[in-house]
Lab assay of single mutants.
Amino acid sequence: KVLVLALYDYQEKSPREVTMKKGDILTLLNSTNKDWWKVEVNGRQGFVPAAYVKVL
């Protein structure tokens, strides 16, 4: 399983997205889209901007 680090806070803007806080460790589920990556955080799955996270 691939983990990513949240570099910035992100507030979800649609039901398909998830909120994350800077420093959160998320599970990367899909990174085929260069702009939006699907992650799991706190038991929820959704998209975050790829530029806001870094693969650990």
Rank of each mutant, 00 (worst) to 15 (best):
K1M: 13
K1F: 14
K1T: 11
K1N: 14
V2Y: 11
V2M: 12
V2A: 10
L3K: 08
L3H: 10
L3A: 06
L3C: 07
V4T: 03
L5Y: 15
L5G: 03
A6P: 01
A6E: 00
A6K: 01
A6W: 01
L7D: 02
L7C: 06
L7Q: 05
L7P: 00
Y8F: 13
Y8H: 14
Y8D: 10
D9Q: 04
D9G: 06
Y10K: 01
Y10I: 01
Y10D: 00
Y10G: 00
Q11C: 07
Q11A: 15
Q11D: 15
Q11L: 11
Q11K: 13
Q11T: 15
E12R: 12
E12P: 14
E12K: 15
K13H: 14
K13C: 14
K13W: 04
S14V: 05
S14N: 13
S14G: 12
S14H: 10
P15R: 08
P15Q: 13
P15N: 12
R16V: 14
R16M: 15
R16W: 15
E17A: 07
E17P: 04
E17N: 06
V18T: 09
V18F: 13
V18I: 15
V18D: 00
T19G: 10
T19I: 03
M20K: 00
M20S: 01
M20R: 00
M20G: 00
K21I: 09
K21D: 04
K21N: 10
K22Y: 05
K22D: 02
K22E: 09
K22V: 10
K22W: 04
K22C: 07
G23I: 01
G23C: 07
D24V: 04
D24L: 05
D24Q: 14
I25M: 09
I25T: 07
I25N: 03
I25W: 05
I25V: 13
I25R: 06
L26W: 02
L26A: 11
L26E: 00
T27P: 15
T27H: 09
T27W: 11
L28H: 01
L28V: 12
L28W: 02
L29A: 03
L29C: 06
L29F: 05
L29P: 00
L29W: 07
N30P: 03
N30R: 08
N30A: 11
N30I: 09
N30D: 12
N30M: 08
N30Y: 11
N30L: 14
S31H: 13
S31R: 10
S31W: 13
S31I: 09
S31M: 11
T32I: 11
T32W: 12
T32S: 12
T32Q: 14
T32N: 14
N33D: 15
N33R: 10
N33S: 09
K34F: 08
K34I: 11
K34N: 12
K34R: 08
K34T: 10
D35F: 15
D35V: 12
W36E: 05
W37R: 02
W37C: 04
W37S: 03
W37H: 03
W37N: 01
K38V: 13
K38P: 01
V39Y: 00
V39H: 00
V39K: 00
V39M: 02
V39N: 00
E40A: 09
E40W: 07
V41R: 13
V41N: 10
V41C: 08
V41H: 10
N42R: 11
N42S: 12
N42G: 13
G43P: 02
G43E: 07
G43H: 09
G43D: 09
G43T: 07
G43M: 08
R44A: 08
R44L: 08
R44K: 15
R44C: 05
Q45F: 12
Q45M: 15
Q45I: 11
G46P: 00
G46F: 07
G46K: 02
G46W: 03
F47R: 04
V48P: 00
V48G: 00
V48E: 00
V48Q: 00
V48Y: 00
P49A: 02
P49Q: 02
P49V: 02
P49H: 02
P49G: 01
A50Q: 06
A50C: 06
A50T: 05
A50K: 08
A50R: 14
A50Y: 02
A51F: 09
A51R: 13
A51H: 11
A51Q: 12
Y52F: 12
Y52T: 06
Y52S: 07
Y52I: 06
V53H: 00
V53L: 12
V53S: 01
V53D: 00
K54P: 01
K54S: 12
K54G: 10
K54R: 15
K54I: 14
V55C: 07
V55L: 10
V55P: 10
V55G: 04
V55D: 04
V55Q: 07
L56T: 06
L56N: 04
L56D: 04
L56A: 05
L56H: 07
